Computed example of a mutant assay.
Amino acid sequence: MNNKVIKAVIIEDEINALEALLIRLKNSVFNIDIVGTADSINKGIEIIESCNPDLVFLDIELPDGNGFEIIDHFNPPDFDVIFTTAFNQYAIKAFKVSALDYLLKPIDGTELNNALQKYIERQSKPVNSNSRFQVFTDFFSKNKNVVNKIVLPNVNGFDIVEISEIIYCCSDRNYTEVHFCNKTKHIISLPLKHIEEILTPFEFIRIHNSFLINMSHIKKYIKGKIAKVVLTNDIVLNVSQVNRNNFLEFLLKAHK
């Protein structure tokens, strides 16, 4: 049991979803004090201003607009946010590239506890969330082809990075090394599989169990018993037999 009392507000217009979340929070291992609920943007702003919560559970689609209008109103917000959503997969990618916390409806108790645990851990190393919200809204409001930044968690907080500047990513157990055009690298506190899910929509492809590359940075492909790619930073990486056919198919499509 975590004894820290978390003052929370829920902004949700669907009564069934609200009641389900209240039950999940009551049964949570965390000490949650629900100080208010609201079912619209205007009421949500009022309840946040009057209750000063630590954490807001925020639905995106509300009767009088988009939940991000609440974030804009409190720019910058002095509370943390966990989004609750029934959005489609495209919108879920927006959450992933922005490193914002979200829960899919119907909300699972284990996922709720995981999100609350992440919230607790963030309190020991708070970071400015404004840029993460901006990355989300950019992704969600524009075609993904014009989105040029993503948010990548690191051991101390978050990095806001240009997608085009990433050459490749390399697995390091439960961490990932992200290598950039300027010859720097960032250590991301996520496994490569998770980074792959984030970057795949931007024409990144897995060529090996250990490597994820940006197709825009391929300089040369070398055939052979052990196939290789040469990237624009002159790094040479192996292409595994398991990934070779998928990689070549992707490469041919990209250059048609």
Rank of each mutant, 00 (worst) to 15 (best):
N209K: 14
K193I: 15
D72W: 09
P201W: 05
S98T: 13
V239C: 11
K4Y: 01
N3V: 09
D172R: 13
A20E: 12
R206E: 00
F133P: 07
I47K: 13
I32L: 04
D39M: 06
G36W: 06
S40K: 03
F30H: 01
N245H: 03
V9Y: 05
F87K: 12
D33F: 13
Q117H: 02
H186Q: 15
F202P: 07
I207Q: 01
N130G: 03
E61C: 12
A8Y: 06
E197F: 01
F158C: 04
E162Y: 13
M1G: 14
G65A: 13
I23H: 07
D72K: 06
T232G: 14
M215R: 03
F180H: 07
S240R: 03
D59W: 08
I218Q: 01
I60V: 13
N3M: 06
Y168P: 00
V5K: 10
Y119Q: 02
V155H: 09
S171L: 14
L231Y: 12
E49C: 15
V9E: 09
V35N: 05
P53S: 07
E197G: 10
G157P: 08
N27M: 12
A86Y: 11
N238G: 02
K219G: 04
T110F: 00
V35S: 05
H73F: 05
S210I: 12
L104H: 14
H179V: 10
P153S: 02
K253R: 13
R24K: 13
N16K: 12
E69G: 10
F136V: 10
P77A: 12
D159C: 00
S129W: 01
Y175L: 02
R206M: 05
Y102N: 00
G67T: 12
L112A: 01
V242G: 03
L212S: 07
N3H: 09
A17I: 08
A8T: 14
K96Q: 15
P191D: 11
T137H: 02
D108F: 00
K193F: 04
L21E: 12
N66G: 03
N113R: 08
F133Q: 03
I32H: 05
I45W: 06
Y90S: 12
Y221D: 04
F180A: 10
Q89I: 15
F30K: 07
I107M: 01
N27D: 11
V242I: 15
L100E: 06
I107K: 11
F87E: 13
L112Q: 02
A227I: 00
I92D: 05
F158G: 00
H217W: 13
I70N: 01
T176I: 00
C170V: 01
F95S: 01
K253C: 12
H186L: 12
E19N: 14
V229E: 02
T110R: 09
F204Q: 10
N209W: 14
L237W: 08
R122K: 11
I11M: 07
K225P: 08
P76G: 06
D108R: 05
N88L: 08
I41C: 07
L103H: 03
N42R: 11
D101A: 02
I10G: 10
P106I: 03
N31S: 09
T37H: 06
C181D: 06
F247W: 09
V97M: 04
K118A: 07
P76A: 06
N66A: 10
N128C: 02
F139N: 05
K7V: 11
A115I: 01
K223I: 09
Q117M: 10
S164Q: 14
I226F: 08
I120A: 00
T232F: 07
A38N: 04
